[in-house]
Simulated scan of single mutants.
Amino acid sequence: MLKASYPVRVVATGGGPTGNFGQRLSLVHSILSGVLRTDIVFAWFAHNHSYLAVMAVRLLRKKSLVVVGGYEVANEPEIGYGALLDPAMAGKVRYIIENADCILAVSEFSRREILAVAEPRRIETIYNGIDTSLFSPEGSKENIVLTVCLVSTANIRVKGLDTFMDAARQIPEARFVLISRALDGALEILKRDAPANVEFVGAVGQAELIGWYRRAKVYCQLSYRESFGVALAEAMSCECVPVVTDRGALPEVAGDTGFVVPYADTHVTADAISQALVADTGSAARKRICELFSREQREQELRRIIATLQL
Rank of each mutant, 00 (worst) to 15 (best):
L2R: 03
A4Y: 05
G14M: 04
G16V: 02
P17N: 08
G19W: 10
F21M: 12
G22C: 14
G22I: 13
R24C: 04
L27E: 00
S30Q: 15
S33F: 14
D39G: 10
V41Y: 00
F42I: 02
F45T: 11
N48T: 13
S50E: 01
V54S: 01
M55S: 07
A56C: 06
V57D: 01
K62S: 06
K63Y: 08
E76K: 12
E78W: 03
P87D: 12
G91K: 10
Y95H: 08
D101A: 02
D101E: 12
I103W: 09
L104A: 04
L104P: 00
S110T: 15
R112A: 12
I114A: 01
P120H: 07
T125I: 10
T125R: 12
S136H: 12
S140Q: 15
V148W: 04
V151S: 02
T153D: 15
A154N: 14
R157G: 00
L161V: 08
L161G: 06
L161P: 08
D162A: 07
D166F: 11
A168E: 02
R169S: 14
P172C: 03
P172H: 02
A174L: 05
F176I: 01
A186F: 03
I189N: 09
D193Y: 13
A196M: 04
N197P: 13
V201M: 02
G202F: 07
G205S: 10
A207P: 03
E208P: 03
E208M: 12
R214C: 06
L222I: 03
Y224E: 05
V230C: 09
L232F: 10
S237E: 04
D246H: 12
R247I: 10
P251Y: 10
F259M: 07
T266E: 07
T266D: 03
A272G: 03
L277S: 03
G282S: 07
S283A: 15
R288M: 06
R288G: 09
R295S: 15
E296Q: 13
Q297I: 13
R298P: 01
I305Q: 14
A307F: 09
